[in-house]
């Protein structure tokens, strides 16, 4: 299991092995939603805010 830094608080975020670009992770320290924008090496950015038209 690898790690990356939270873009919001700088804490270490644990990453699972089957990480996918476009996936959303939660920072367990500050609660920020983070989007995986690269996997090699892993890079996290702030996830987009929930939009009104999101759904199924």
């Amino acid at each position: 299991m690898s790690t990356a830094d939270c873009i919001e608080c700088g804490a270490e975020v644990s990453l699972h092995d089957d990480l996918e670009i476009g996936e959303i992770l939660d920072c367990m320290t500050c609660g920020a939603e983070l989007e995986v924008v690269d996997v090699s090496p892993p890079v996290l950015e702030q996830a987009p805010e929930l939009e009104e038209d999101w759904g199924e």
Binding site: D18, E20, I21, G22, E23, I24, E35, V36, P48
Partner: peptide
């Protein structure tokens, strides 16, 4: 086609 990978998409990709 996606803009967010939910667990649903991860299951499909797998």
């Amino acid at each position: 086609l996606y803009s967010r990978i939910r667990r649903d998409e991860k299951l499909l990709l797998s």
